[in-house]
Amino acid sequence: MRPLTTSRLSITLGLAMDSLNAALRKAEALNASVSITIVDIGGRMIHMAHMDNAPLQSREIALNKARTAVGFGVSTSQWTERLQRCSPAVQQGLPLQPGMALFGGGEPFILDGQVIGAVGVSGASEAMDTQCAQAAIEHAQTLLQG
């Protein structure tokens, strides 16, 4: 008989808070004002920060980046390359889907090969957003391995 339920690990609020603070520290070091959102395995926001002077729209963009990263299990910065391998219909249609953010700043949290949540950062350049998101991931990996 096939299983009728599944069990999946998910990031905790404590890990989300610690990771978000690492991203905030990176943003401050870069002199950037950003929004940072952490989502659990189901894409539900569990922690968020909007820095002073960050653009208003960056809140929703950060959430979309996190949800895109958790949903597909890959960094949102990989989508430019990934879309080049797709049909023209997918290249044109996927970016138009509601809630999709197919540019840098979204990173999945991965534990033992399984996605357990994601972080999204928006408000600075794509490169800075990505650096801040990666700071959150690196900090989480240190804590999870510790």
Rank of each mutant, 00 (worst) to 15 (best):
G42Q: 10
L56N: 12
T68R: 09
A23L: 05
Q57K: 09
R25G: 03
G73C: 05
A69M: 07
S33D: 14
G71N: 12
E81I: 02
R85I: 06
V70Q: 03
V39E: 06
A62S: 15
F72K: 06
G42I: 01
C86M: 11
A22G: 08
M48K: 11
R82G: 02
D40G: 09
A27R: 04
T80A: 14
A66M: 06
E28C: 05
T76L: 07
G43N: 04
A66K: 09
T37A: 13
L83E: 10
F72T: 15
V34P: 07
P88W: 00
G93Q: 06
I36W: 01
N53Y: 11
K65V: 04
R82C: 00
A23K: 00
A69E: 06
A32E: 11
H50Y: 11
T76F: 09
L63C: 06
G71H: 12
D40I: 02
E28K: 15
A29T: 08
F72G: 08
A89E: 15
A49N: 10
G73P: 01
A23S: 04
R59M: 14
I61N: 02
A89Q: 14
H47M: 07
C86W: 01
R85L: 14
L30T: 01
T37I: 10
G43I: 02
S87Y: 00
L63P: 01
Q78C: 12
N31S: 15
C86S: 07
W79G: 00
G71R: 03
L30W: 00
L56G: 10
I36E: 03
N31T: 12
M45T: 10
Q84W: 02
R67G: 04
S58C: 09
I36R: 00
E60Q: 13
R44P: 03
L24Q: 09
D52R: 11
A69G: 06
R59H: 07
I36T: 03
V34C: 04
Q84V: 00
R44E: 07
R59W: 00
A27S: 03
K65L: 08
M48G: 10
M51C: 12
K65Y: 08
L24Y: 03
S58H: 05
A29V: 04
M48W: 02
R85H: 14
S33V: 04
N31L: 14
C86R: 10
M45W: 00
T80G: 12
S58D: 10
Q84K: 13
I38D: 11
L83I: 06
A54N: 02
L83H: 10
A62Y: 15
Q91E: 11
A89I: 12
S77E: 13
I38P: 08
I61Q: 08
R85D: 11
H50A: 14
R59Q: 14
L24T: 04
V39R: 02
Q91Y: 15
K26N: 01
Q57R: 11
N31G: 13
S87N: 03
R67F: 00
L63N: 08
A69L: 03
G42N: 08
A69V: 04
L30M: 07
R67S: 05
V34I: 13
P88T: 04
A49D: 11
A66D: 07
N31I: 09
F72P: 15
T80L: 12
S35N: 14
